[in-house]
Design a protein around this nucleic acid. Structure first.
Lengths: 159, 159
DNA sequence: AAAAATACGATAATAATAGTCGTATATGAG
DNA sequence: CTCATATACGACTATTATTATCGTATTTTT
């Protein structure tokens, strides 16, 4: 049916975490390690995901020791459609619909296919719908329990 | 982002074709061969897709020579959400959301994950939205040019 | 009996996604 | 100025999901 890929999930976790930090007056940056430790995400992928999010401007990076990421734009103005496109690229709902970057997704039924219009219409509608939903509109994005830092043994003496 | 699989496309082609036939007073059944020939679809997959559609009641089969398929329910009462679920199963928008049949899609962050609620909410909204759209609402589902039967040589003497 | 069609399970091929590895670069702290 | 920590980035591998193929059985009309 309709499905998000996992890195989008990781990205959402990251955004929500940073947003929460910010709203608590915590101005510290968030490192890939911090996220992967806290949520049990694979570090390498978390790091790579954050880099892609930086490329698209969702977050801002600071290199070097004590480096990390902070929010790059106001989440209360970011809609779901835009978020998904930033995370996964301008993919269409269905393969035969244009506006796709990958050449492999161009339909071989070209010309013959009679559902292109139907699919394109559906795609447009879903996109329009998602454009109307802001990330911060989604239930539980805000109003979660304050982040309790359950520090690991290994981290204790490191601080 | 959000994507349909190809067999759903095939299924949509089949439904539209049969619906169109019906509205023209053509009461003949539609065979897998007929569809695969006309639209250049792989026969085996078309056949299998039609079988799954029969399993879910979308279409009705008639076995044997001169057998084939006819519509099993009124398309003007079939919404997109239901259609997608019948074609692809009750999959969720995102892996960590429940209601999935495959055990592999259960999230390993169980308990820790804090976006489950967000994703579940988004999933519910998209589903509700799709429920409000009927297949026949979609542009170009109806009002297409009458099917011109460009009969192939091989079919001519068979009729 | 033969031909045409669906029924169905097993398996192979392909594509998409997820994850790993190695190395380079930047920066703060001592 | 060196070390530790963190991002940056490309190439590669593994895993999973999807798509397609194959072989055989069954049903029904002629």
């Amino acid at each position: 049916m309709v499905k998000l890929n996992r890195t989008t999930e990781y990205g959402l976790i990251a955004l929500r975490y940073m947003s929460d930090k910010e709203s608590q007056g915590d101005t510290s940056v968030t490192s890939a390690r911090e996220l992967s430790d806290r949520y049990g995400l694979p570090f390498e992928i978390t790091a790579k995901t954050l880099q892609r999010m930086r490329d698209t401007g969702l977050i801002i990076s600071a290199q070097g020791a004590r480096g990390g990421y902070t929010l790059g734009r106001s989440l209360s103005e970011l809609n779901v459609s835009t978020f998904l496109e930033l995370m996964e690229g301008p993919q269409a709902l269905v393969s035969c619909t244009g506006s796709s970057l990958t050449s492999s997704s161009s339909c071989e039924l070209q010309g013959k296919c009679e559902v292109k219009g139907i699919m394109g219409d559906l795609n447009d509608r879903v996109k329009e719908f998602l454009t109307g939903i802001l990330l911060t509109d989604l239930a539980e994005f805000k109003n979660i329990q304050p982040l309790k830092v359950e520090v690991k043994e290994s981290e204790v003496h490191a601080i």
